[in-house]
Each structure stands twice: as structure tokens, then as C-alpha cells.
Design a binder for these strands. Structure first.
Lengths: 233, 233
DNA sequence: TCTAATTTTTAGATTAGTCTAAAAATATTT
DNA sequence: AAATATTTTTAGACTAATCTAAAAATTAGA
């Protein structure tokens, strides 16, 4: 028998591997974005595996009652699957706060490390980390941190690309978390808490001219504006 | 192909799995304790696997040049194998300091969590943690923390069981790290930094009578005295 | 609605890490 | 030195997670 126990020193209601956790997280994120039953190809794209591997895995996850699965019809998370996924999100974001606030990592550096740390098995550890960090409500990218029960305010912010001329707001988060994107935002100065005034929208290429922090005029490409969240007000 | 890469988001000189790391650590620890080439059965006992599994694994580790292996003759670590093992020890002990100093875990609780955390792949993370924790030289059990190069002062302390009547010293560490043992030490009050004066040694069962912190007389069983380090002076 | 394109599943392999049972080598005892 | 005991290795099998190639089901288009 494969000795999975080595990686899981504690007792769980349902045994679950790191890979299974990652699949559940991927399904959760895709569903959050698209809002419907998640199909095989979307998962294989997110997980960087083949469709065949995904089919194998979703059968296993369905057997363990983490997802509802109907052949050729895609999958949805069960209550238990959603619990696992939000617990992972909680852990990931909590560790990101630790890495940035305490160890001085920048927002583009902390993601990959948090991908590893989120698999440490101990809810208690995360609760203690929570207290140690001063019960943060958001991670360094502006993403809300779920509480122990998995509840968290869904973002009410709008994408920069959805704002109209005259709207004013504050940069509060990103939709895309790639290192390349975050480093680009850093370089152009569009970082967390930056003030954004929409001056002009160019229909031709959907680019947006904004005033940044009441000082600099900046032309934002659609690729950027569609991945940056702004809180209007 | 099995997608090991999921757990190893960074690039390494030599790719190594968590299981392989654990075997190297076990070999390192056994060799540290026994001081000679490490045999199959000792490893299978430490890893809680069968001798057959160990044979499989040491072949793989020898192929990757982490160990020197001669059939039926046991194994020793290569320079690279030792580097991996001491890096693990460094990570383990650093995380233990974090868990105890920052998150309030007790010395018997932090070990199991550190067993998980030590596999997080990032030397830089540990260096930052080192600074954040104030460059600690010892972990909460009194074990020395290796530096980046893997160097650390071997313990000059003696085992309580090796002291003679009249010796005085301070409790500085343990040889055995089990939760049960640490909790027992807590209960009898023989904790880190406790003052120990050896009053009497009973040859019959090798038990030792000590004065604890200049106040309480305490009878220590051989099982305890052979696993507690004391710094004489 | 029939055909073509796309998506998903199945079939069959591979690797890491494990096992049990049996064989081989080494060590110990008489 | 032979017999016995112990240790180690080999042989063969299993599971999780992956793959490629082919088949089946669904969806889209003419």
C-alpha cells in the first residue's frame, strides 16, 4: 500500500492528498469565476494536466463525495468539497500575509511559497497565525480571507475595465495573480491603495486613461484593466 | 509521467521528493547516534517501513548520489546527501523556534508541525525566518540550529545518566523528542534551563537522585536520565 | 437533421513508493 | 566447520497520479 500517511501526520475526517486538494481548489476557483458546473477541459487547463488525468481524478473525488459528477456534464463541489477548498484559500491567504508582513516578501513573491504552505495540515496553526497577524481580513493582493467556517465577504469591487468616465476609486485587488502581472503593476505604479480616476476610455482597443494618485496620467491596457479591482467611492 | 513538479515549484540542482528527504534525514540521525554505516533494518525501523522498501529506496538514493551503498554493507551519506539532511535539520529547528516563540506552541507540540514545515522548498524563506526570529542558535529542545552551510556546534553537553555524584549543571536539551517523553519532563519539572545537582546514583536500577532548581529532591529513572542533556558548570 | 468539430471518456502504460513472501548473503552459535 | 539465526535482497504485486492514443458522446454548423 502506498504510504500516504507520511505526509499526513494527523487524523482527518476524510483522508485527502495534496493533489486532490489542488484539484478541489481549481474547481472552486473556476466555479467562482464562471459561476456554473465546471468542465473537464477547464480543469485540465488550470491544473496543467491532460483531460484524461482529470477524468481519472474527478471519478476519485466523486467517490469520496467531494464533488457531484455526471459523465460528460462537468462537476460541482459538494458542501464538503467547498469546505476543503475554502479552508485552502484561508490558509493560502493567511500565509501570504505572514510572508509579506513579517518576512518582507513583496506581493509578487509570496504566491508560490503560499502554494506550498497552504498544504500544511493543521487548522489550529492557521488560527494561531490569524491571531499572531492581528486577524487580517485581506491578503496582500486585496483578496478577502475566509474565516474558520469558510465565510467571507465576496468582493463588491468592480474591475477597472468596467468603470465609466468620471468614476473615482481605490485599487483594492487583482483577479490575475501571476508574478509577471504583479511585477508589471508594480512597475507602472498601480499598486494596492492607489487612487484611480477614470479620465477617458478608448473604444478602439478598450484602453483606459486614468489619473493615478491625483498626480500622474496613465494609459492602461485592457489586459491590465480587466484584471484590477477598484473600490468605487 | 508522474507529475512530481506539483510539489516542487522551484528549480533544484537535484530533484528530490519529500520521501527521499525523509530517508536521508533518518540516515543522518542514525549515523549521528551510532557513528557508523547505517544498515537496512535500522532505517526501516526509523521510517516505519519494511526492509524491502528500504532496499528499493537506497538503490534510488545511491543512483542519485545522495548515499554510498554497498550491497549487504549498509549506507553512508555523500557530501550532497549530508547537505540535504542538515538543510532539513536547519529548517525543522527554525520552524520549531517560530512555532514556540511566535505562535505559543509548547515544546512537545511543535515537533509534528515542524515535520511538515521542514519540507517547504525555499532556502531564502528559512534565512528570512532566521532574521525574523533573531538568529536563534538553538531550538526549543536545546538542539543547535545549523547555519546555511550546515555547520553547527555538536553538543558538548553530557547525558544526565553520565554525570557523577557532586556534578552540577543546567538542563539544555533532550535526545528523545517524542511527545510522551516531553510531556513527562514537563510534569516532573525537568525542563529547559532547570538547575540539576546530582545527589546520589543507585547502581541497582541506574536511577539518579537530583536536587532540582536548588529546591526539590527528585528521583530520575534511567530511561529519563539517558535522554536528557545537561551542561556542566 | 445530418455531418463535422469538439469535448470527454476509456484503454493501456509508466513511475514512485509501498507491500508480502521467498531466496540469498552474512553473522552467530554450538 | 557446520548448523542456525538474522539481515538483506529479489520477485512480483498494488495504488495514486500521470501519460498517449483511440473511442464515444455531445455540441455546433451547414
Amino acid at each position: 500500500m502506498h504510504k500516504t500517511i507520511l505526509y499526513y501526520p494527523f487524523q482527518f475526517t476524510t483522508m485527502i492528498s495534496q493533489t486532490e486538494e489542488n484539484y478541489l481548489k481549481a474547481i472552486y476557483k473556476i466555479n467562482e469565476r464562471e459561476g456554473k458546473s465546471v468542465n473537464t477541459n477547464a480543469i485540465s487547463a488550470a491544473m496543467n494536466t491532460t483531460a484524461a488525468s482529470v477524468t481519472d481524478m474527478i471519478k476519485r473525488l466523486a467517490d469520496k463525495d467531494f464533488i457531484n459528477y455526471e459523465k460528460y456534464r462537468g462537476v460541482t463541489l459538494t458542501t464538503e468539497g467547498e469546505r476543503v477548498a475554502t479552508a485552502l484559500v484561508r490558509k493560502h491567504r493567511m500565509w501570504e500575509v505572514f510572508l509579506c508582513d513579517k518576512l518582507g516578501y513583496s506581493w509578487d513573491e509570496c504566491h508560490d511559497l503560499a502554494e506550498q504552505l497552504e498544504h500544511i495540515q493543521s487548522a489550529d496553526l492557521i488560527d494561531r497565525l490569524d491571531s499572531f497577524l492581528g486577524k487580517p481580513k485581506f491578503d496582500p493582493h486585496g483578496d478577502p480571507i475566509p474565516d474558520r467556517e469558510g465565510n467571507y465577504a465576496k468582493r463588491q469591487q468592480v474591475l477597472l475595465g468596467e468603470m465609466t468616465v468620471g468614476d473615482k476609486g481605490v485599487m483594492v485587488g487583482v483577479q490575475e495573480h501571476s508574478t509577471a502581472f504583479l511585477q508589471h503593476l508594480d512597475r507602472i505604479g498601480l499598486v494596492l491603495a492607489a487612487e484611480v480616476d477614470v479620465l477617458e476610455i478608448f473604444e478602439f482597443d478598450k484602453s483606459v486613461k486614468i489619473k493615478l494618485n491625483k498626480t500622474t496620467d496613465l494609459l492602461i491596457s485592457s489586459k491590465v484593466s480587466e484584471n484590477v479591482f477598484v473600490k468605487i467611492g
